[in-house]
Computed example of a mutant assay.
Amino acid sequence: MALRATIYKVELNVADNDRAYYGSHTLTLARHPSETEERLMARLLAYGLYVQSDEGLSFSRGLSDSDEPALWEHDLGGNLMHWLEVGLPDDRRLIKASGRAEKVTVLAYGRNVSVWWSGIKDKISRARNVQVYALDVAGTDALAALAERGLTINLNVQDGTVWASTDKGEATIEISHLNAAA
């Protein structure tokens, strides 16, 4: 018998001072049996960092479909506007995504980000629509510890730092732009 996804009900409150976006969202996330809570919470963080309204940005089938990102945004005509990856995708995946979407964003996390980045940065440099950010390890570990199946989480964003708080605790996630223009 196949394992089923675990369902998480989330009330997400975003106060993003960097984008001047403030909103509340009721979400249902499915955690794939092979997905860690760290990746689940990184996907939730990505949603909070890039949501602009209740329409547009959505979770894809993710791990269940290798041809889809963690999140994506389509315009009203169905055109793929934003491809959002979470984790350490390979260069071929990012080059392919850069041809399909107007904008590609990667939120890399984990202990091997620097090794991954050194191996991929030259290969994706020609894809001008790919932006890569790194989430600090301590921050994503603390964020994963906040995961609960019924979750109310507040994200406050300012100057590339995210403060996440729930009834269970708090996490501070530092975000660095890896391929920023020098």
Rank of each mutant, 00 (worst) to 15 (best):
124 I>N: 06
148 E>K: 11
158 Q>T: 14
57 L>P: 09
109 Y>C: 00
63 L>F: 03
59 F>H: 02
72 W>A: 11
83 W>E: 00
37 E>K: 14
16 D>Y: 07
105 T>P: 01
110 G>V: 04
161 T>C: 14
49 L>T: 04
10 V>D: 00
78 G>P: 11
89 P>V: 03
31 R>N: 00
37 E>M: 06
33 P>W: 04
91 D>N: 06
64 S>G: 11
69 P>L: 03
77 G>R: 10
21 Y>G: 05
19 R>I: 08
32 H>F: 03
163 W>R: 15
46 A>I: 07
54 D>Y: 02
116 W>Q: 04
12 L>C: 07
77 G>K: 08
152 T>R: 15
179 N>C: 05
172 T>M: 15
74 H>V: 11
168 K>D: 11
167 D>P: 08
78 G>Q: 10
55 E>D: 11
1 M>P: 13
73 E>P: 09
133 Y>R: 14
85 E>I: 10
154 N>S: 12
112 N>L: 14
85 E>Q: 13
79 N>A: 15
2 A>K: 09
38 E>P: 01
138 A>Y: 05
85 E>G: 06
79 N>K: 15
176 S>D: 13
63 L>W: 06
179 N>L: 03
176 S>A: 13
69 P>C: 05
36 T>C: 01
5 A>T: 02
165 S>M: 14
73 E>A: 11
179 N>S: 04
105 T>R: 01
163 W>M: 12
127 A>L: 05
65 D>I: 07
76 L>R: 14
111 R>Y: 14
159 D>E: 15
93 R>F: 00
10 V>I: 12
132 V>F: 06
56 G>K: 11
88 L>T: 13
120 I>W: 00
181 A>G: 09
67 D>I: 02
96 K>L: 04
57 L>K: 09
178 L>H: 10
182 A>D: 10
181 A>K: 14
99 G>V: 00
123 K>C: 04
104 V>C: 03
8 Y>R: 10
165 S>P: 12
32 H>L: 04
65 D>T: 10
110 G>W: 04
153 I>Y: 09
75 D>L: 04
156 N>P: 01
15 A>R: 12
44 L>I: 09
92 R>C: 00
65 D>R: 15
171 A>I: 11
157 V>Y: 02
66 S>H: 10
161 T>Y: 11
141 D>C: 07
29 L>K: 03
123 K>Q: 15
94 L>V: 03
73 E>M: 13
1 M>T: 13
177 H>D: 08
42 A>V: 14
1 M>A: 12
57 L>M: 07
180 A>P: 04
150 G>H: 14
67 D>R: 14
49 L>G: 01
43 R>Q: 07
5 A>W: 00
117 W>R: 11
140 T>R: 03
139 G>N: 09
